[in-house]
């Protein structure tokens, strides 16, 4: 237990330095660099030859229809699916075969699309899992909305509150890179705005690299610096958002616009 706590505690202090050394290391390289990635679940290959990169202080969006492999791409970064070939680098370091629980130490954190908080644990306990008991309360500094619920089981939260808690949990270690998988799914527009505002603030304040999977394309394109369009596991577009919006062909074929 002591060792796991140390590993966690240590990561928060050195994720800053790893971020700094990372950005100087790769000398103008990308915060995330995925090359020719093929991955899937067991025999079922989902992504085919995916090239992807994302930069510090930018928001990179991933869009595509249901089942196109957006979540799988984020899961690949976190070792949650089977990588068959290709390489994944984060802040200049290779993380292709790092076990899931150790990836946090590379300055990355990941907020899953579903089940991203422990339902049976109270909010305070959820935070204690990532921050240790002493620091749990401080993790709430950016989320005053949640303070009244600290001692309630997370299962009693509304959808929006739960997403906020999930965010609070991944922010504990000041990650340089943050992966959000549909953080606004199933939220009312008001709550979705709150979440997106938080994400944009993070980006503006801390030069973080943010990767955002979004179902709502217009929403995503309005808020991002770079966009990837996935279709059946292939990248069909990667680059600035405007050309994608203006490309009638792509837009109508994949985005239903």
């Amino acid at each position: 237990m002591a060792s796991s706590r140390n590993a966690l505690g240590g990561s928060s202090s050195d994720s800053g330095s790893s971020g700094r050394s990372g950005s100087s290391n790769n000398g103008g390289g990308h915060a995330i660099e995925i090359k020719d990635l093929a991955c899937g679940y067991g025999k079922n290959q989902v992504l085919h030859g995916v090239d992807f990169s994302a930069d510090l202080s930018k928001i990179t969006a991933i869009v595509g229809s249901n089942g196109s492999g957006k979540s799988t791409l984020l899961k690949a970064l976190f070792g949650l699916c089977d990588v068959k070939s290709g390489s994944i680098q984060a802040l200049g370091r290779d993380i292709t075969h790092i076990p899931t629980h150790a990836i946090l130490n590379y300055g990355i954190s990941y907020m899953a699309q579903r089940k991203n908080v422990f339902q049976d644990l109270t909010l305070r306990e959820n935070l204690a899992v990532v921050a240790g008991r002493q620091r749990a309360d401080r993790a709430m500094d950016h989320f005053p909305e949640l303070l009244p619920f600290l001692d309630r089981p997370a299962v009693t939260l509304s959808g929006g509150q739960r997403q906020l808690l999930a965010m609070a949990m991944i922010l504990v270690h000041n990650p340089k890179i943050m992966l959000f998988d549909e953080p606004t799914a199933a939220l009312s527009p008001k709550n979705a705005d709150i979440i997106i505002e938080k994400i944009k603030n993070l980006n503006a304040e801390h030069d973080n690299c943010i990767v955002l999977v979004e179902q709502n394309v217009k929403y995503a394109l309005r808020n991002c610096d770079k966009v990837y369009l996935l279709a059946s596991g292939h990248v069909v577009y990667g680059g600035d958002p405007e050309p994608l919006l203006n490309d009638k062909d792509l837009a109508s074929k994949y985005l239903g616009m």
């Binding site: 949650l80 076990p99 899931t100 150790a102 990836i103 946090l104 954190s109 899953a112 899992v129 991944i170």
Partner: peptide, 21 residues
Amino acid sequence: SFGMSMRGAIENESLAQTLGI
């Protein structure tokens, strides 16, 4: 917090792993 991580890991192993447990 070790015990809380334990309860978390029992409930949802992959979430626990992504959180560094």
